[in-house]
Design a protein around this nucleic acid. Structure first.
Lengths: 152, 152
DNA sequence: CTAGAAACTAGAGTCGGGTCTAGATCAAGA
DNA sequence: TCTTGATCTAGACCCGACTCTAGTTTCTAG
């Protein structure tokens, strides 16, 4: 039932180094226990938490914020509001990321499609090439492209 | 018509430092020209390119990859295939990011909703708190939650 | 003419998020 | 017994992407 750091590394996808690092940084909710010989022992719940952690990280939550969350939980009842707020902030953040990526994707698809056309016709060199300012014009006249590119 | 580095900074949202840094790193397609006194001059096209650059960056393309793209363009016709491949790879990458974020979002919404319920009922302490392994059980028995959490 | 803003260069520093090293300890198998 | 391999600690190192500093020059307004 007990897991060694190596097993956890393998199953979580994090390196043993990263696991020790996470521990130092206070990213484990239940402080990692040790065997009498000093070796760390983990349990399934740690793996579950690491999975969540990894999700939070890969969706852009910083380790500092994850630590904050854990600290709130560690303080026990009474701060549920703060926890919820933290989670909701991240939720919004993720939503915003999705929107932006979706926009970028639309732009890219458009560009790539046009690029392909031009490649087929052997005249692609000018596209998305800022040294040739007529690139935009070409694209635009051929297929509406970007009436106002600066959509960031 | 000519823009100073300060103007470009203001309009692009990048710092003057960053602009000089980008230039050193070869991220400008049309090499930045100088006035006789050594000062950089930029044009509208540079702003357009910077807008694209910023989009690529914020969607996770590294500066190194952006440089690669520019290098391909700079080599002139003949490598359209490579350019297209690079763009498509990024397209895929962005798509993958969106999918993952969407998944994360679903998970988070679910958790937050449940958390809210529990807060309302004053029994929230155990949720998403790996020190209380019964959290999952509670959530699960209350509202289906995670039959198999490790959905990464 | 002078002050202050803005630009220049080279290079150092920062920050987040790890990764790696060295040297020691410990467990298990040939 | 000896070796191999996993673990331990403290702390150095790395990488990407900037950011800032110092010292200098140049432009602009008063």
């Amino acid at each position: 039932m007990d897991l060694s750091i190596g097993e956890v590394a393998e199953r979580s996808g994090l390196s043993v180094h990263a696991l020790r690092f996470y521990e130092r940084e206070g990213l484990f909710a239940n402080p990692v226990r040790r065997l009498s010989n000093g070796r760390r022992i983990y349990h399934e719940e740690d793996l579950e938490w690491l999975a969540i952690c990894t999700r939070l990280r890969s969706s852009g939550m910083s380790l500092a914020t994850i630590r904050q969350y854990i600290e709130l939980v560690g303080q026990g009842p009474g701060n549920e509001h703060e926890r919820l707020e933290l989670l909701r902030r991240h939720e919004n953040h993720v939503e915003a990321q999705i929107r932006e990526l979706q926009e970028t994707l639309d732009v890219m698809r458009h560009k790539v499609r046009i690029y392909e056309d031009h490649v087929v016709r052997g005249e692609a060199d000018r596209l998305w090439n800022p040294s040739h300012p007529d690139a935009a014009a070409r694209a635009t006249t051929h297929q509406e492209c970007h009436p106002s590119e600066g959509g960031t």
